[in-house]
Design a protein around this nucleic acid. Structure first.
Length: 910
RNA sequence: GGGUGAUUAGCUCAGCUGGUUAGAGCGCCGCCCUUACAAGGCGGAGGUCGUAAGUUCGACUCUUACAUCACCCACCA
């Protein structure tokens, strides 16, 4: 074995070996564990969020595999309609070609080519992280099988009238020229104005003033609305006003939805361009006047001067004109929110169009129920509230998109706009007995990408094509995903599964946090703080990192900023830390659903931890060369240290199991870290050096193998590699760690005092070491020490391990029955013993005295506090006895410390 | 406007159903290149747990109010 752990030399080979040996395919077993991977979008490469998610899933997958279950991790990728289409459009543009010149078929071919590229990149990245998914079952949402299911589901929902086509107000993305769902719209605050417009009454010289943030929509007004309680305008109800410029007459109506205190109390109603107005329009049976073309230009319903102008840029000109004509009364600064398309960043316009909708209320009800009934559980639980809230206020889902990339809607129209839904034109002609001379055209729209995603847990698991797989692995045990897609995906999967399989898709939903940068900022290309998981695994030079972060930035100032910050944060680039360190980091950071601040220092710490395990293993292999290892431990041979470490290890194992069910990955990682480093390496391995006999060797191998197994789910590469070394030495018979079984509890009869006895010895060692460094005694100077034992039960242990203590403290020890009060000794007092250290060449007496006085003060304050408690009558009466005893024993311990310090003080002052 | 989460050491975070001298990693300080590991060893400094009140024998932990930050939902044009 190498002296240093070098992840880049081992990881690739190990992964290849796992794949070659088909280690990721489910084994035969009566119990199963199944999980689907949230399919990443084929929009490019994986980011830190994916790496985090994969790590969490992989830890559980490997753990359950080691429990001997039939484990299926179903991987795949998502076609991600709009997002992917945009990426490909940009690519085409960047090569200087015209996207619009391409036919639908040509464009889709381009996307498929891109999909190959991106899909492969993603799979390779996933592998580099160590994910043990069953690649033989890899799926893509637009695979034939999955597409067929999408089609079937659509048809069946249509036949049940849960999918319908309707002319409705939808969120229209002008840039993409497609409808998008409510969820794909984000609201942004913006500085704007509130414009006051004067409308003239018909047949009267009177006028009224309305306030609006969108003056350009007045061409589409079909009423003025006032609150029935508003005495200022009561006389106007039923009258008509004439719209400026276009001179169209519209009625004045009343509705209590109008806020009398806002603006003038008069509200213009534009039913075809505002969601609230749409409702008013429906309620009062108003005209729906559309003023917009699909490309965002104004149509012939506006004044001719503005026809063909863009609705987003026409405002300034229009307002100027209104001002000239004295229609604009005034404008006030006003902060309002505008809807922005999530993908394009363009302002979304409400637009009246024909779209396909899915009726949600009945499905949502069932979706609520399974969570209420605890058939599906969210971790952390508070997400259930958010889930309920959304489902209980759900609107129908607009599922059609006017783009090319996606599942084409299986609907055809004849020349009279009759709708036929079916698998193909041929099937439809049969089904509806349509004559050949009837012209049929397929709907050009595709489905919202989340439609196919919502079927993912069953469409990938053989719902239609492999009953044995479906029955065995569905429902899955768990879903691991981010909170940002609870509505988009999680809720819809639950609803669709119930609808089509009559079952839930998963029992548990573990919601993890977001991976942010080290300052807690969202990682984003425009801020230039993105770190690629592969760059942490493989390392990257500063130059390359700068290039990566700035190539997509156009703004020069932004570029300079990013360069400056990157140089500050990564002056020498990023070193290669390996996948295991990255994984351990994610594990350690994954506390209950909180966001993660990604910090390279942390990674380095965990890389060091891997190195620690590496070297601990190396030490044991070196020490046990040629040793005839017996897998069975005979407790009669074990020293108290052997027993102690086995007990502790047992606790770590049972904690690990507990944390897999409570999803406390952070505690899992910390428990292992603490045990391996601070107990196993710092103490047990050090102790073993003093007494390297066959019994010790046997325990060393036994314990390290358990540790390697325990760590494998988190850090699979390094542990598998170490395992190979043990296999070579014939210490293990199973060839591959991934196939081995997770450690079970060792049931050696517990001896309660083992830990106490070991700790006493550790205490003595620590006390001596502490005193040595505090007094500035060089490590090489031997300290003459006497130990006076007060508690007889300690004596045997002390005598037995005297040499060990001497070697670990560099002392010469005399175990004596007598108290000593020779002045060249200082005494450290404990309940059970007193240590006398013969100290020469003391230094810095002044400073030591100061330190001692400070410590004394602290301890005395604590004693005072405890005394206060113990003297408190109600405390004695009401507190449980074990708490009281604890206080009493603490008190005596601290009083000993005080005594020691006082003695030390006395010795020093002489 | 409604909701959720957060606020603990210089930084990043643990602290479960109230009871330890409030912990860890990184960073910092001192000593040590002791043949598993300097990506290391030994030791150390550093916190009135956001503020205020309340419940309790006892509050980092429970209650209420407030402050600050983050996010989500709905938006009065």
């Amino acid at each position: 074995m190498n002296k240093q752990y070098k992840p880049q030399e081992i990881e690739q080979a190990i992964y290849d070996e796992w794949e070659k040996n088909k280690c990721f395919s489910p084994k035969q077993s009566s119990s199963k564990f199944s999980i689907v991977l949230p399919p990443p979008n084929v929009t490019g490469t994986l980011h830190m969020g994916h790496a985090f998610q994969h790590t969490i899933i992989d830890i559980l997958v490997r753990y359950h595999r080691m429990l001997g279950k039939s484990v299926l991790w179903q991987p795949g990728t998502d076609h991600a309609g709009i997002a992917t289409q945009l990426v490909v459009e940009n690519r085409i543009k960047n090569t200087g070609r015209d996207v619009k010149a391409l036919s639908r078929e040509e464009f889709i071919d381009e996307v498929w080519a891109w999909k190959e590229l991106s899909g492969n990149t993603i799979i390779n990245q996933t592998k580099r992280i160590g994910s043990s998914a069953d690649w033989s079952r890899n799926r893509f949402t637009m695979d034939d099988g999955l597409s067929k299911i999408v089609e079937d589901v659509f048809i069946s929902l249509y036949e049940e009238k849960l999918i319908y086509r309707g002319n409705r107000l939808v969120n229209w993305d002008i840039k993409l020229q497609t409808a998008v769902s409510d969820l794909e719209v984000v609201n942004k605050e913006q500085d704007g104005y509130l414009y006051y417009l004067r409308y003239q009454l018909k047949d009267s010289s009177d006028s009224i003033v309305v306030a609006t943030t969108r003056p350009e929509t007045f061409f589409g007004d079909s009423a003025i609305c006032i609150n029935p309680e508003d005495t200022r305008y009561k006389h106007l109800i039923g009258k008509e006003i004439t719209l400026p410029m276009i001179k169209r007459n519209i009625p004045v109506i009343q509705d209590e939805m109008v806020d009398m205190d806002f603006g003038t109390g008069c509200l213009k109603i534009t039913p075809a361009h505002d969601f609230n107005d749409y409702k008013v329009g429906k309620k009062h049976n108003l005209d729906f006047i559309n003023i917009l073309n699909k490309d965002g230009t104004l149509n012939e319903n506006v004044h001719e001067k503005y026809i063909g102008k863009n609705i987003h840029t026409v405002r300034e000109e229009l307002v100027n004109d209104l001002e000239k004509e004295q229609i604009l009364v005034k404008k006030d600064k006003y902060q309002n929110t505008v809807p922005i398309g999530e993908r394009t960043g363009e302002i979304i316009e409400p637009l009246l169009t024909n779209q396909w909708f899915m009726s949600m209320s009945s499905l949502a009800e069932k979706g609520v129920k399974v969570v209420e009934d605890k058939k599906v559980n969210f971790v952390p639980k508070h997400w259930e509230k958010i889930y309920f809230n959304w489902l209980r206020n759900i609107e129908d889902w607009c599922i059609s998109r006017q783009i090319f990339w996606g599942h084409r809607i299986p609907a055809w129209y004849d020349d009279n706009a009759n709708i036929y839904v079916g698998k193909s034109e041929k099937e439809i002609r049969n089904k509806y007995e349509l004559a050949d001379n009837i012209n049929l055209i397929q709907d050009s729209d595709v489905l919202d990408t989340w439609f196919s995603s919502s079927l993912w847990p069953f469409s990938t698991l053989g719902w239609k094509d492999d009953k044995s797989v479906f029955e065995k692995y569905f429902p899955t045990n768990l879903l691991v995903t981010g909170f940002d897609i609870i509505f988009f995906w999680v809720a819809r999967m639950i609803m669709m599964s119930i609808k089509f399989t009559d079952n839930i898709p998963f029992n548990k939903v573990y919601i993890h946090g977001l991976v942010r940068d080290s300052e807690g900022k969202k990682m984003s290309k425009s801020i230039g703080n993105v770190i690629d998981p592969l760059d942490v695994i493989d390392g990257i030079s500063l130059d390359k990192l700068l290039e990566k972060r700035t190539t997509s930035l156009l703004n020069e100032r932004q570029k300079a900023d990013v360069i400056k910050k990157t140089k500050r944060d990564f002056p020498t680039g990023i070193r290669e830390y390996g996948a295991d360190a990255l994984r351990f980091n994610f594990c350690a950071m994954a506390s209950t659903g909180r966001d993660i601040n990604f910090d390279l220092n942390r990674i380095e710490g965990y890389r060091n931890f891997c190195n620690k395990i590496w070297n601990a293993s190396r030490y044991i292999l070196m020490s046990c060369e040629g040793f005839n290892y017996q897998e069975k431990i005979n407790p009669n041979d074990s020293s108290i240290f052997d027993k102690w470490i086995l007990y502790s290890l047992d606790n770590v194992v049972s904690d690990f199991k507990k944390y897999t069910t409570t999803y406390r990955f952070d505690l899992m990682a910390n428990g292992i870290y603490d045990f391996v480093w601070n107990e196993y390496c710092d103490w047990y391995l050090e102790i073993s050096k003093y007494n390297m006999n066959d019994v010790t060797k046997n325990h060393l191998i036994f314990s390290i193998l358990r540790i390697i197994k325990l760590c494998h789910p988190i850090i699979p590469f390094i542990t598998e590699n170490i395992w190979k070394e043990f296999y070579k030495c014939k210490f293990v018979t199973e060839k591959m760690l991934i196939d081995s079984s997770f450690p079970s509890q060792i049931r050696i009869s517990k001896e309660d005092d083992v830990e106490v006895r070991v700790n006493r010895i550790r205490e003595i060692i620590k006390k001596i070491r502490k005193t040595r460094t505090e007094l500035g005694i060089h490590p090489k100077d031997i300290i003459i020490t006497k130990i006076h034992i007060k508690k007889l039960e300690m004596k045997n242990d002390l005598i037995e391990h005297q040499g060990l203590i001497e070697s670990m403290t560099n002392t010469n020890i005399d175990i004596t029955a007598e108290q000593s009060n020779v002045s060249e000794y200082i005494d450290l007092i404990d309940d059970n013993y007193t240590l006398y250290l013969k100290i020469r060449n003391m230094i810095n007496i002044q400073e030591e005295m100061k330190r001692i006085d400070k410590k004394l003060k602290e301890l005395e304050a604590i004693v005072t506090k405890i005394n206060f408690k113990l003297n408190n009558k109600s405390f004695i009466e009401k507190a449980p006895s074990e708490i009281i005893n604890q206080n009493i024993s603490n008190k005596s311990k601290i009083e000993n410390d005080i005594l020691s310090l006082n003695n030390l003080r006395k010795t020093l002052s002489n």
